[in-house]
């Protein structure tokens, strides 16, 4: 019976994310349009886009078609699995069984899918995109790991549902480390969700979507969907880690509070994306390196109990 409920709640989490992700993308587009004084597409446009792409013929273009297909599936499957593990305004599906390390692995897999996609496509621009994604991933992923580790250190546990409940602030003394990590992740969130100024790997005006350049039809739909899901899960992770207030309120209220926070976060991401220019890869690396340095300080503080 317990297993049944775990499966049900994980599945319902996934479906919620699948259902809401395009809507959030729609809100994002509408808000961008608003900032840009435009009408903007209808709120439901992302759903139609996905349906249209899914309905197209599956063309093979690239070096390794099978791997490409696999990478497209992986790209969506990895963040969806994360969605299945996260508490989304309700308690986490896997109580006392999941480990925060699993989360880190899955998130690395998300990036890995894009790399695989680019490598197996094998065109010049996808390879440039891959090398950029790789460089970003190497400097970016540690930041998230660091945040989780700081949280785990503060609560002395790697249990998923405890880590994802404002753990960085749970230090014995005043939570300096948590606040620092909040700043670090807030300043790198744009990169996690692949938005300007850090959409370097897919820069449309430079390298034409980089790794995704060779993809069309259903495969592209999966990548686009994955992109939308990533937006939701990273927003959810950020909220669970750093802004947990109100998530555990009673059933409908917690849900409402949680999703309102997600929407606000998406709005903030949109406004930042709309008012910035894209950085160059070397500038971005320097930026991330600086953040990594700061997060190391936070780690030391967390070890010392701050």
């Amino acid at each position: 019976m317990r297993l049944f409920w775990i499966i049900i709640s994980a599945l319902s989490n996934m479906f919620t994310v699948l259902l809401l992700a395009p809507l959030l993308e729609g809100i994002l587009r509408k808000l961008t349009a608003w900032v840009q004084s435009r009408q903007g597409p209808p709120l439901w446009q992302p759903y139609f886009d996905l349906l249209k792409l899914l309905g197209k013929e599956d063309l093979e273009s690239g070096e390794l078609p099978v791997v490409q297909q696999f990478s497209a599936c992986l790209a969506l499957a990895a963040p969806l699995t994360v969605a299945g593990l996260l508490p989304l305004g309700s308690s986490a599906p896997l109580q006392e069984r999941a480990d925060a390390i699993l989360l880190i692995y899955l998130l690395v897999l998300c990036g890995g899918a894009t790399l695989l996609a680019g490598l197996s496509a094998g065109s010049t621009y996808s390879l440039i995109g891959v090398s950029r994604e790789m460089m970003t991933a190497i400097t970016l992923e540690p930041l998230f790991v660091m945040a989780v580790v700081v949280g785990a250190l503060n609560i002395h546990s790697f249990r998923l549902e405890s880590v994802l409940d404002g753990s960085p602030y749970a230090a014995a003394h005043f939570p300096w480390s948590g606040l620092i990590m909040l700043g670090v992740l807030a300043f790198s969130l744009q990169a996690f969700v692949n938005r300007v100024p850090f959409d370097i790997g897919e820069a449309e005006t430079e390298i034409m979507e980089g790794p995704l350049m060779e993809y069309s039809g259903p495969k592209l739909a999966l990548f686009k969907y994955a992109q939308m899901v990533r937006l939701v899960i990273f927003a959810a992770l950020f909220i669970n880690l750093f802004l947990p207030l109100g998530n555990d309120w009673r059933f409908p209220l917690g849900l409402v509070v949680f999703w309102s926070k997600v929407m606000l976060l998406v709005a903030a991401i949109t406004v930042i994306a709309a008012t910035h220019a894209r950085l160059r890869i070397d500038q971005a690396m320097r930026y991330f390196a600086g953040l990594a340095g700061i997060s190391l300080v936070a780690l030391v503080l967390a070890v010392c109990g701050f």
């Binding site: 608003w34 900032v35 840009q36 004084s37 435009r38 009408q39 406004v271 709309a274 008012t275 910035h276």
Partner: peptide
């Protein structure tokens, strides 16, 4: 200047037509 830019944007309102 970012704030200024946002103000310019918001001051303009929606100008495109359906």
């Amino acid at each position: 200047s970012k704030i200024r830019e946002v103000m310019i944007c918001l001051g303009a309102g929606q100008v495109t037509l359906p």
